[in-house]
Amino acid sequence: MADALLANNIVKAFKKSRKEIKALKGISLRIKEGEIYGLLGPNGSGKSTFIRIASTLLIPDRGSISIFGYDSVSNSASVQRMINRVSVEASFFRKLSAVENLCFSAGLYGIPRREALKKINGLAERFGLDLKRLKDPLEDFSRGMQQKVAIVRAFMTEPKMLLLDEPTTGLDPRAKRDVQSLINDVKNTMNTTMLLTTHDMDEAEKLCDYVAIIHLGRIVASGRPSELKKQLLGKVDNPSFEDVFLEFTGMSIEEAEYQEVESA
């Protein structure tokens, strides 16, 4: 399989109140075409910074990311045509309806109006959205429904690579299950490569073909979920993915989150 994303020694630091925060300290990773790659880590570990670099919204201090062979900085226009994103916040014009928001997005990607409406209806039906409600303002939608509209927005442009930045965080259990099954459904029916960031261990194990654990801006472990768990055999009985995280970071996800917040 060809490389969908190739990141080489990405370094990024931010200045905040005269203090330098090193968000990424040399991240290298390779995602193969058609794969769901999980970037697993606590809040503040650098996951979203990595996604924003891959989205062409952030320029790294050092290193490079190429998506299907195109550099995300020097050839950002080509990268932008191949990617789309679903982030933790659905991010819509709240007073506009779902259709108005989706038609705006379709226009930005050069999709003709008639084609866009056809895609919106098709995807909305497939993802279980009530077609009658698509004309309602987005502010009247539940968070789970907004996230489904965000998924429609992303798939409408038929991205070769989809960046999923904690798409289930903050959703109620039912909405979370719905979004996860959508991702699974897409994995089984479309050849979209996905980079999923999450701090939900079960989600990573359930959805991802390959995972990397990111802690304090560095990748501390990577491999197939089953392989990572296998490394714990003999140390832990019936290891869970929580145990994998504990083994490679030396702390639980909750402790790691506390540490990341403190160090920021």
Binding site: R52, L57, R81, Y109
Partner: peptide, 13 residues
């Protein structure tokens, strides 16, 4: 304000 800035600026326009 609308929190859409990232989506608009990552679009191929």
């Amino acid at each position: 304000w609308e929190e859409t800035i990232e989506y608009t600026f990552m679009a191929p326009v």
